[in-house]
Computed example of a mutant assay.
Amino acid sequence: METTNKQIRVVIEGQSESETKINLRAGKFNLIIDEPAAMGGSDEGPTPVQVLLMSLAGCLSITGHAVAQQRGMKLKDLKIKIDGTMNPCAFMGVSFEERPGFQMINVNVEADFEGATQEEKDAWLEETEKRCPVTDNIKESTHITLTSK
């Protein structure tokens, strides 16, 4: 990540290793994204849509902890379960009646606070959602430019 006065630039690079598998690098970290054997992959890593939901969970966790700390709340434990529903037909080229992405994403957050009221917990969750960059990128339209060399 590169930081300027008001921007953070996040760069990842990847090399495709097969039709379904890509090896990605983000700074000093590597991640393999693949498809399960049933989808023609070698099942050596999570799928792209699983990584998207994992990113959402990770970002909500980090943002939630920051919001709690800034509000002076003691967050003892945080569990996040995300369930996304999508129709793979557009991705597979079978039907284009529905969009290829998730039609619904349900996020269940179990936050254990020391001495917080339900009103404080609700306000914490609302602020966490508003401040989470991954939530914002999923819920709002982000301009994406694809180029080819």
Rank of each mutant, 00 (worst) to 15 (best):
F96E: 11
I62F: 14
D43W: 00
P88A: 02
K21N: 04
K74A: 09
A37H: 10
D43P: 03
M73Q: 13
P88Y: 02
G41A: 14
K74S: 08
D83N: 04
K76Q: 10
F91Q: 08
G45D: 12
S18F: 02
K79G: 09
Q69R: 15
D77G: 14
C89G: 09
L56M: 09
G64Y: 00
I105D: 03
Q103F: 00
T20V: 04
I80Q: 01
Q70V: 07
D77N: 14
N87G: 08
A66W: 06
L78Y: 07
Q50H: 15
G93H: 01
G64I: 03
R25H: 09
Q70K: 11
Q103K: 06
S55C: 06
L53Y: 04
I12Y: 04
G72C: 03
I82V: 07
A26K: 13
I12F: 03
Q103W: 00
K76N: 08
A90P: 07
P88N: 03
V11I: 10
G58A: 05
A90H: 13
E35V: 07
S42I: 01
M86Y: 15
E19S: 04
G93M: 01
G72N: 05
R25Q: 12
G101T: 08
F91S: 11
E19F: 10
G84Q: 04
Q69N: 15
L24C: 15
N87A: 03
T20K: 14
S18N: 03
G58M: 07
G101D: 12
T47L: 00
M86I: 12
Q69T: 15
S61Y: 00
R25G: 02
E19I: 05
G27Q: 12
E13A: 08
V11Q: 06
I33A: 11
S42Q: 07
D83V: 12
I82Q: 00
S95W: 09
G14T: 11
I80F: 04
M92Y: 10
M73F: 04
R99F: 00
I82E: 00
E17C: 05
F102T: 00
V51F: 06
Q50T: 15
A68M: 04
T20F: 10
